[in-house]
Design a protein around this nucleic acid. Structure first.
Length: 225
DNA sequence: TTCCAGGCAATAC
DNA sequence: GTATTGCATGGA
């Protein structure tokens, strides 16, 4: 049964990789120097509103972009004292674009950050998925990441890795929709944001270890024939 | 040099 | 409704 395997896969990944501590947050290493860190076994993040905003910014910047590049962009913003909602609202797109350049698509992303900041600023209570999805630049995965890691609301995040792993294990069809995959997890697992956070992070970790880049994979297969 | 990365919106059919 | 394309940088 598929649902049993969803549980067993979590246990196996958890045994293999241990606690993940997502979402990584910026921390001061020493005076004037910042780094990005995970926080294993600590689910008390985000600690404040700026940190919450930072997680949302990271979720937008990491769209189709490696996290390493996003870190550079986040640290640029932090050094410029602009990793907060007010600063993003006040700054012009060109200024933001220059700082987030390492994360790619900087013209689109700087506009999307400004749209998001306006919305974030007028937020009175916890957001809904539907509300987030009305924003230009926020699709399903980004909305779920913001809900799950920013607001600690159990909304399972489905990304390209999740799809690839489940498809490889024949647990889903190649062309299953986002919603179908999300429902598979959400109808199987206890509704606990900590579990959802760890599970998604573990899938990404496993994919990074196990799945090789296309070219390397082909070379690997060729070497066996 | 080519390919890829923790997607999304606009456009085309 | 589903398929394709543009967006951009840095690392392997």
């Amino acid at each position: 049964m598929v649902k049993d395997r969803i549980i067993k896969i979590y246990d196996a990944l958890s045994d293999r990789y241990g606690p993940q501590g997502w979402w990584p947050v910026i921390k001061q290493i020493k005076k004037g120097e910042f780094g990005c860190f995970y926080h294993k076994n600590d689910f008390s993040f985000p600690k404040n509103k700026d940190e919450l905003f930072e997680i949302c910014v990271g979720a937008i910047l990491t769209q189709n972009t490696s996290w390493k590049n996003v870190e550079k962009a986040l640290i640029n913003l932090k050094n410029a004292k602009m990793l907060n909602c007010d600063s993003i609202i006040k700054a012009n797109k060109e200024t933001i674009g220059e700082l987030i350049k390492p994360s790619g698509y900087y013209n689109q992303k700087s506009e999307r950050l400004k749209i998001f900041a306006e919305w974030f600023n007028s937020l009175k209570k916890d957001p809904t998925r539907e509300g987030l999805l009305t924003l230009k630049g926020i699709g399903e995965e980004t909305a779920d990441s913001i809900l799950l890691y920013g607001f600690s609301i159990p909304s399972f995040v489905v990304d390209a890795y999740t799809k690839r792993i489940l498809s490889n294990l024949s647990l889903i069809n190649e062309n299953s929709s986002y919603g179908e995959i999300q429902r598979l997890f959400e109808s199987t697992l206890p509704r606990d944001f900590r579990l959802y956070q760890e599970y998604h992070a573990l899938l990404v970790e496993h994919a990074k270890h196990f799945y090789m880049k296309k070219q390397n994979k082909e070379d690997f297969l060729l070497s066996l024939s």
